[in-house]
């Protein structure tokens, strides 16, 4: 019964209709949450006693970092669906996630640097999280480059999906190896400012931002993925109606 559902929503016309209905809701809700969250984070939440106002950067840094990883997971899952069920829609979704995820990774890195510059004194340290975020960016770029260089659509889809699946198997290994390398290499040169259990006034904007980013992400993927589906299906009959 579940499989039937996949086939139902996996067929391009149904997917298109469903997604176009979903998209405005996601965008409105996501933007609303982001707006409230950033106002809350920037103006309402109290200053951190250690870091002052600079801690407000985390309201923009943490959601993008979360999103960069979950976008990769989403890309990997839709690649698996694409390869297993040969679903064109899943490939389209995976392809439209890739640039978004890469951009979010870049944003996470840039905001992390902007936070690190006043806090640690340097924009870049060989911290485990920073390094694995950078590797994540490389994985995204590899996917995008592979997809762009193979001319033929179907081959490009399947090759890039295989790469994404390999990446998803490898990502935990990379992450833990970097963590391990880091702990042995430079123990305690940077003490992560021990985060005292974050108070409620500081927490709610952060949660709001994270969820808002996620919902916004779904909205954008609806739009981008449906554009991709349209381009692929441009010769079929149902697209004439839209």
């Amino acid at each position: 019964m579940n499989l039937k559902k996949i086939y139902k929503y996996g067929s391009p016309p149904n997917f298109y209709r469903f997604v176009m209905k979903l998209e405005p809701w996601c965008l409105c809700l996501g933007l609303l949450m982001i707006a409230i969250g950033s106002i809350g984070g920037l103006f309402v939440a109290p200053k951190d006693y250690q870091m002052g106002d600079a801690f407000r950067i985390i309201y923009f840094h943490v959601p993008s970092a979360y999103l960069s990883m979950s976008a990769y997971a989403a890309m990997g899952i839709s690649s698996i669906i694409g390869i297993v069920w040969r679903s064109n829609v899943a490939f389209a979704v995976a392809k439209s996630i890739a640039p978004f995820g890469a951009l979010m990774t870049a944003v996470a890195l840039i905001t992390g640097m902007l936070w690190g510059k006043p806090m640690w004194g340097t924009a870049w340290v060989w911290d485990a999280r920073l390094t694995s975020e950078f590797i994540l960016l490389l994985l995204y770029l590899g996917y995008i480059a592979l997809h762009a260089t193979i001319k033929e659509q179907k081959r490009a889809d399947r090759a890039a999906s295989l790469l994404a699946i390999l990446g998803i198997v490898n990502l935990p290994i990379i992450h833990y190896s970097v963590v391990w390398w880091n702990t042995l290499h430079q123990a305690s040169t940077i003490s992560k400012l021990d985060s005292p259990s974050i108070v409620g006034e500081m927490l709610w904007p952060l949660l709001l931002m994270i969820i808002g980013y996620m919902i916004f992400f779904v909205g954008v993927i609806c739009r981008g993925g449906s554009a991709e589906v349209l381009m692929r299906e441009k010769r079929s009959n149902w697209v004439k109606e839209v």
Binding site: S38, L42, I110, T111
Partner: peptide, 9 residues
């Protein structure tokens, strides 16, 4: 730092 990170995001 704060405003440029807001801007970038």
């Amino acid at each position: 730092y704060v405003w440029s990170s807001v801007f970038v995001s």
